[in-house]
Design a protein around this nucleic acid. Structure first.
Lengths: 237, 237
DNA sequence: CGTCTCTTGGTGACTTAGTTACATACGCGC
DNA sequence: GCGCGTATGTAACTAAGTCACCAAGAGACG
């Protein structure tokens, strides 16, 4: 799909000057001691990657801690049979905390991260990351909070995949992807990949939703027409 | 079940002297500077809890970092409908890293931890934990490594729940629970709870396994009789 | 010892989800 | 307007989970 898909694009790691004041995007970091702050500005780089870049993946550990300035990173897992499930998304203002923990722990990262849009991020080298963790309570707080959120989210996913009905999960996902908009640009296959389900299953559910007048479909597009109904279903009855 | 179940027992937090040399159980910590080490011995407590204790759970955040000296902690999640799934176990020599991250991040912990056996653990108060993280690269390494392992494991669980067949997962779980032994002391319901499945489903699969001569069953007991066959199935064909 | 009760496991009918193997339809480039 | 790749539809089937109930085992207790 256009907005969720990963094109196969090379990664020309566009590296920009590290001069800009990107720190406004990360309030928690503003409280760092000036000395450390200086290090941060100096040793970290601002990188840009095109849409579709694979930022990390199995056997491809990232070498730095990323703070996302712009864009979205989709973190997903792919089974041997080629089925996918989306674990979470990193938005502007957030960090790739789990990635980093795995990096610090020297463990192979099992999930992969794809740039869903063109992204801009601050890359903090491993050594500096370690120094920051050591020297700043605020930075620790920032990192652990991010961890915490992700892990909590993983727990929720496990619960949903294990126990929640697919129609409920689909309704939730549609609302999540739509946000305030009415239209979702995604194929049935894309939606199946979001939920770790199969395309046929999603097609059937979507048709059922459409039959009930909750949405309209066009090629690659789902348009919500009865949000309250979806919300009601999503709220798990 | 006897070995996996959680009895409803009170928690008389038996606190012991902190004098003993428990550090031999945690090689990574032996490299700490002597000064920090002294703090650790002084400020941390050795606690004992009976089998079945609920160590943490939703709305019940732990207030310290736990290093397990003896016993096993089962971390699981329960759905609204009462169905359960086991996420991982903390063994002697390991730490409750995820719990701690969530604790540091001030987020409500969604899973619950149950003492599967009588346990003995070192409880490191939050403040000291923070100081240790700040002052010791070795301690950071230790914590992040544990974290990494858990997260990787969560990813595997998501993949298995979403994409793996139940017979394959059951075979894996039986082998895991059996270890080197032949007998597993667990009811079908217990096994279902391990996998986040339903009792009837597990019963059917076990009966099929028994029919094939791979195991024998008695009330509350599964005895493996053809390990190679189970291994073969577990290896995902 | 016999009966009562609670736990554990068995069974069949049914629903939901996922699989397989196609057919069809849309829309873009030419 | 024609082809072609991608997207969606469909039907028959298997796997997994649900529901409702029954029966066997294991203590408990008189």
């Amino acid at each position: 799909m256009a907005s969720l898909d990963d094109a196969d694009v090379a990664q020309p790691d566009v590296v920009m000057s590290s001069e800009q004041d990107w720190t406004s995007a990360f309030p928690p970091l503003r409280q760092l001691p000036e000395e450390i702050f200086a290090q941060l500005r100096e040793a970290s780089l601002i990188v840009e990657l095109p849409e579709g870049s694979r930022i990390f993946g199995p056997g491809q550990a990232p070498d730095s801690f990323l703070l996302l300035l712009d864009g979205t990173i989709r973190v997903q897992q792919t089974s041997e049979a080629g089925r996918e499930i989306v674990l979470y998304r990193v938005q502007a203002g957030e960090s790739c905390a789990l990635t980093t923990a795995c990096l610090m722990g020297y463990e192979e990262y099992q999930a992969e991260g794809i740039a869903e849009t063109r992204i801009r991020a601050v890359a903090i080298p491993r050594a500096l990351f370690d120094r920051l963790i050591a020297s700043s309570r605020e930075f620790r707080q920032f990192v652990f909070t991010a961890f915490s959120r992700r892990v909590t989210n993983l727990f929720r996913i496990i619960e949903e995949v294990a126990f929640e009905r697919i129609d409920v999960r689909l309704a939730q996902k549609l609302l999540e992807l739509a946000g305030a908009k009415q239209q979702i640009v995604a194929t049935h296959q894309d939606l199946a990949n979001e939920l770790g389900s199969a395309r046929e299953v999603i097609s059937r559910q979507l048709n059922e939703f459409a039959r009930r007048g909750w949405l309209r479909m066009a090629r690659g597009i789902v348009e919500i027409t009865d949000r309250p109904a979806l919300v009601q279903l999503a709220q798990h009855d």
